[in-house]
Design a protein around this nucleic acid. Structure first.
Length: 679
DNA sequence: CTAAGCGTAAACAACC
DNA sequence: CGGTTGTTTACGCTTA
């Protein structure tokens, strides 16, 4: 019976798994063909993905065909046999697919969501890629589920009919066998999916962290609800038919919004968000997503939200979920229109992928450019107001002003925010150079934690970007980093120049500032030495400097202890204490978006909270803390109309990930040579 | 609007 | 004498 469609050279004629493989690779045409070579062999990876998407559609189509055929065959068999099946059929455990309600609907992120994500810079390019890949995988998976579901439905239907018709046990067994076969197919498909993902990973498209599950492939055989699956089946399969884009005018932007089914937070979130896999709190970043409202809905469905059908361009009001399902089945059945719309959706995803690729490339170029130009005249570094540099988390704004890198105090107008190195690029910053400046969001003394610097030291070393820390903080850091916890003025200078490319210029200015700070702040104590004098830090005094309130966004994350490069055991405690006060890590949005870093989020948060508590309880006069996120987020949160074409993906990237050639510390600096020695 | 923190500029003194 | 180290004052800007 399956010969035709199942024709696969690999497996036995009746092996349904063959069908899948076959279809998967030869989806070019509904009818199976035998050329095993991938139809996309010569395309770029992105293109391949695109092709794959099309293949999936075709595959589904084929699957549908098979399903139909199967059904017909079974019906024929029934008629032929004309017997009834006595008992044992109302439910056959073997045939029942484990149902796990909540997870059944893998979510496919809609363009809108994607855009939101992009705008908010929640994700790094890598993450976006992962997301896109996952989306594709999910689509495939979904489709498979549909298929499976359909099959199951049909089988059950058949069973019922058989029951009524008094079918013979033999028939039942056959049916059962078929079901098993389907399950096998599904398993195989899962494997295929995984292989696909692996290949993507290998090709660098998928950057999944080692410890992170590549993709939460949920067992297809699990968690399937007839109704849900049926819906999905219809939704997805509708993608196979005719071209025609009539009803697809509703641009991608009108496409539905996926709602998160949270009944199974873990699963759903995993699917929705890669970060969730490592950090169950990623939602913290995307709390405002409208999906939240749906989350609690018992019948969450990607195409249903707020009592409205979210099928692209539909928006039909549906009282309840049931009516919605009804609507979905009737209005969005498998027809040309639905198919076209589905196709559009796929294209949207593809477009996003391309966009991502472009942006990534651009980012790369920018980074390369900036690193290279660190030796050029200062025209360049415009430290961004964009929260860019990941690293600059806190008050990136504090970064130098436009053309005058050394005039940090002048925030001024938004200049062309040139992203520096590893940074987060926002649509906002890139195009609408609005006055998003959020200077000094946390200006005070932001004593950098060693981690801050450590995390981004490479960046600052090479990028002439003004570090978002106050002189006091930097000086303190320099001193604390020294073995003796004390440095001479000159050593402090050297530390500055060594650690920050920015301080390789305008020496007179910042050196004066350093001296000024040393003298001005009581926290810096001058200690007479045999051969002169050294400066030390009075941590208590430093903490006192300014009681700060915890503006509370507990979500600020800090990667404190994670980077100990600079954290000597000794000052760790102090740092931690001070951290509470200033914790503003260089890790904020960007870090959250990063799968790897994101994982540190919760831990860090806890740590931070702990530190804060500690500080609060011990330092009566200081209640430090500030809200890094607040400081950094403004830009991200800013809602900017996103131009589909120009939309700059929010690329957040991994900080130290890349930095170019190491800076030559010993070279002569423009304004004055710095002798590098001490330490 | 005010106060406080910060950065920058600069005057000035002591010292090497 | 010139440069470095320190101290101090003033001013402008930003944020709370």
């Amino acid at each position: 019976m399956f010969q035709c469609v199942f024709s696969s050279s690999v497996l036995q004629p009746h092996s349904t798994s063959c069908l899948f493989k076959h279809l998967f690779y030869h989806s070019a045409t509904p009818a199976s063909q035998k050329q095993p070579e991938p139809i996309y062999s010569k395309k770029t990876e992105i293109q391949r993905q695109t092709v794959r998407a099309h293949s999936v559609k075709l595959f589904i189509f084929s699957a549908l065909q098979v399903a139909r055929q199967l059904l017909l065959q079974q019906q024929q068999q029934q008629q032929v046999s004309g017997l009834k099946s006595p008992k044992r059929n109302d439910k056959q455990p073997a045939l029942q697919v484990p149902v796990s309600v909540a997870m059944m609907t893998p979510q496919v992120i809609t363009p809108q969501q994607m855009q939101q994500i992009l705008q908010q810079q929640v994700l790094s390019p890598q993450q976006l890629q992962v997301l896109l890949q996952q989306q594709q995988a999910l689509m495939l998976q979904q489709q498979l589920q549909e298929f499976y579901k359909k099959q199951q439905e049909q089988l059950q239907l058949q069973l019922l009919q058989q029951q009524h018709a008094g079918k013979q046990p033999k028939e039942q067994q056959q049916v059962a066998t078929q079901q098993l076969a389907f399950q096998q197919q599904l398993l195989q498909m899962q494997q295929l999916q995984q292989q696909h993902l692996l290949s993507l990973q290998r090709q660098g498209l998928l950057t999944i962290q080692p410890g992170q599950p590549a993709l939460p492939l949920q067992p297809l055989a699990q968690g399937m609800i007839p109704t849900e699956l049926q819906q999905l089946w219809k939704e997805v399969t509708s993608a196979h038919s005719a071209e025609e884009t009539t009803g697809s005018n509703h641009s991608s932007l009108d496409l539905t919004t996926t709602c998160v089914s949270s009944s199974a937070p873990s699963k759903t979130s995993l699917i929705m968000n890669p970060h969730a896999s490592t950090n169950g709190q990623l939602s913290v970043h995307t709390p405002k997503r409208e999906s939240l409202s749906h989350e609690e809905h018992p019948h969450s469905h990607p195409l249903y939200g707020h009592g409205v059908c979210k099928w692209p361009g539909c928006e039909a009001v549906c009282e309840d979920f049931q009516s919605f399902l009804k609507h979905l089945n009737s209005e969005h059945a498998l027809d040309d229109r639905s198919t076209a719309q589905c196709r559009v959706q796929m294209q949207v995803v593809q477009q996003l992928e391309l966009q991502l690729a472009k942006d990534k490339e651009r980012l790369q170029a920018m980074m390369t450019h900036l690193h290279v130009k660190s030796t050029e005249p200062k025209a360049a570094p415009q430290p961004l107001n964009l929260v860019s540099s990941v690293t600059l988390s806190k008050s990136a704004s504090e970064a130098s002003p436009q053309s005058l890198p050394h005039t940090p105090t002048t925030p001024t107008a938004p200049i062309t925010p040139v992203t520096q190195g590893p940074s987060v690029i926002t649509t906002t910053s890139m195009h609408t150079v609005g006055p998003i400046r959020r200077r000094y969001s946390d200006k005070y003394n932001v004593p950098i934690s060693s981690a801050d610097i450590a995390q981004n030291q490479e960046f600052y070393k090479n990028a002439e970007v003004r570090p978002p820390f106050t002189y006091a903080s930097l000086i303190r850091q320099a001193i604390l980093e020294s073995p003796e916890k004390q440095l001479t003025l000159n050593e402090i200078y050297n530390w500055f120049t060594r650690m920050f490319a920015y301080f390789r210029r305008n020496a007179a200015t910042w050196k004066n500032a350093v001296r000024h700070n040393l003298s001005l702040h009581k926290c810096f104590v001058r200690v007479e030495n045999v051969k002169g004098a050294v400066w030390t830090v009075d941590e208590v005094e430093f903490q006192k400097r300014r009681p700060q309130k915890i503006s509370g966004n507990p979500s600020l994350i800090k990667n404190m202890q994670t980077s100990h490069a600079y954290c000597t055991p000794l000052n760790a405690a102090l740092q931690q204490a001070s951290m509470a006060e200033n914790s503003i890590p260089l890790y904020t949005t960007a870090s959250m978006g990063n799968p790897t870093l994101g994982n540190l989020a919760s831990a860090i948060r806890e740590e931070l909270n702990g530190a804060m508590e500690h500080t609060n309880s011990n330092e009566s006069d200081s209640s430090p803390g500030r809200s890094p996120l607040q400081a950094v987020h403004p830009v991200h949160v800013k809602e900017e109309p996103l131009d589909p074409e120009e939309a700059e993906g929010p690329l957040s990237l991994v900080t130290t990930a890349n930095h170019s050639p190491d800076f030559d510390h010993d070279r002569d600096y423009e304004d004055e040579p710095v002798n590098e020695d001490m330490e």
